[in-house]
Design a protein around this nucleic acid. Structure first.
Lengths: 297, 297
DNA sequence: TCACCTTTGAAAGATATTTTCGGTTCGGTG
DNA sequence: CACCGAACCGAAAATATCTTTCAAAGGTGA
């Protein structure tokens, strides 16, 4: 029963134990060092390992051979692999909240992890039928107004910027008065989108209501599918709500979630209007090129 | 279309993407080979890899250096580690680009996956020392100016909003003239942050340069660590660059990446100023409460 | 077009690995 | 106790691999 080396993680230590009896004293010293600290040994050259174990290069090579490798070089590569595996094994230790005294590296890891989680949740919870309907509405719209305030306002602008780039007519409003004033102009065939995490931001609901009553197709992007904003929404796109912690305000994850939804809308629209969207994207890219100092070689 | 990139090999693929622009043609060939097949390349000697990529040993070594290793030997060890990880680790999860005729559900899944990847890459590539230094500068700053244009402008605003919420004095500028005008006011102890994916946006570099020359501590958040903007930056925070596809403009992933960096800055600052930040966050939360109708139906 | 700078690979130089080979140790034997 | 042979070991030579140098090729801007 011979095993294929390379795949099993702990096979090296086992192999050392098995073969130890047939090893000479100095070879055992080498094997021991290797089994004891794969990562450390992977960083050493033959000479280094020979010195560490108080033996010679020749012995190290002999040991490597006995362990089944063509030479020390290959043993070393295997050790590096082993070390990496070991390391990755103890990676998922980032389940706790961010603490005040977390080192900065942990903060990065935890934030990244949490945002990834948020994305996964959002994708899983998004109703693709509603999304498709919203895309259809956008594609056929004469004009599109997007309402959002605070952090959601930035998302609204993001969506607007993107839609403009593919030739749609879109405006973002963060001023409630102007938003309502503009909403009055909307009529059937137009689209109004409200972005609010809580779903209860009056300043955003109001323009959506007006748009709704004027016959526009209305979309709500919210984390609360049962909130007030949805009563005026033809289509509701639900963002995920992750628990809020003291150092990580809800705004952070809701933003991530909202942006994913907005990206989906954008790509959906771009797909459906590919004929015009593709050249438009290319054109806007071109137009920006001269704003960048040329650094490309 | 082009090649079907397998699952990205950890952060190496990301590093390759980030550094690709600053590579010469033949170095790119090498980098591509390495990123595409870490396991295969780990089995090759310098000469072998040089032949495989149709280049010379010298070029291979140069590439290894650029990727951050002292030489090819070390790159090779890293590759072996990567290969082992990849093999034992999770399923390949191969993704193809978003196609024009992808059903909407696929679009959601692919976008979510790619953004998650972007987050992981960003976290892996972020220099925590630089991040820590930037946080320290922010904590001690009299005032902070943030420059960003287009999509990056929204990120700038996001950062500003957050910093304001914990009591720091911060302004976002997307008007180049006003940005410069304000930059002149900055002096030692102040902080200026430039956000630009390409690193070559003149309108953002200019105010940073002015701030730099007036003695402010300057930070650049960019996807191109070797771009012009970095010459005026005391601290450089690198965002990840994922490959751009027709339906997924670079702006999308760079935004995700930038936001993570910005969040890290924010949380870092909040940690260090916990005594004042915590009540400030609570207060702003309170202040908003009455803007939300309490109707949870 | 020319001058200048970048990129590149061939080959020299430096390291690391493998092999060779002779000395040493140890156990047995006369 | 001296001797012998086999296994063990490491110094150093031989080889393979990696790194550096340098000059030619290729490109760029004036």
């Amino acid at each position: 029963m011979k095993e294929i080396f390379g795949s099993p993680g702990g096979s090296l230590a086992a192999k050392v134990r098995t073969l130890a009896p047939s090893m000479t004293r100095s070879m055992q010293r080498v094997a021991e060092a290797v089994a004891g600290d794969p990562a450390g040994c992977a960083a050493l050259t033959v000479t280094g390992l020979a010195e560490l174990t108080g033996t010679s290069e020749a012995t190290v090579v002999r040991t490597a051979r006995l362990l089944g490798y063509p030479g020390y070089r290959d043993l070393r590569l295997a050790l590096a692999g082993l070390a990496a595996q070991q390391q990755s094994g103890r990676a998922p230790a980032i389940t706790t909240d961010i603490a005040v005294d977390d080192p900065i590296a942990d903060v990065v890891a935890k934030l990244a992890y949490e945002e990834q989680q948020t994305l996964a949740d959002t994708a899983a919870g998004l109703d693709t039928a509603q999304l498709g309907a919203a895309v259809t509405a956008l594609v056929g719209a004469r004009r599109t107004d997007v309402y959002g305030i605070g952090a959601s306002g930035l998302v609204a602008q993001d969506l607007t910027q993107k839609l403009l780039r593919i030739g749609l007519i879109a405006h973002a409003h963060s001023d409630p008065h102007l938003a309502v004033t503009n909403a009055v102009q909307l009529r059937s065939g137009d689209v109004a989108i409200a972005i609010t995490h809580s779903g209860s931001t009056g300043d955003v609901i109001e323009p959506l209501r007006v748009a709704f009553e004027h016959g526009a197709t209305t979309v709500a992007i919210t984390g609360r599918p049962d909130s007030p904003v949805t009563q005026y929404a033809d289509h509701v796109l639900t963002t995920s709500t992750s628990r809020e912690t003291e150092l990580r305000p809800a705004a952070m994850s809701s933003r991530t979630s909202q942006l994913l939804v907005v990206d989906c809308l954008f790509v959906g629209v771009a797909q459906r209007t590919y004929e015009t969207a593709a050249p438009a994207l290319a054109a806007s890219y071109e137009a920006l090129a001269h704003r960048h100092r040329s650094t490309t070689r």
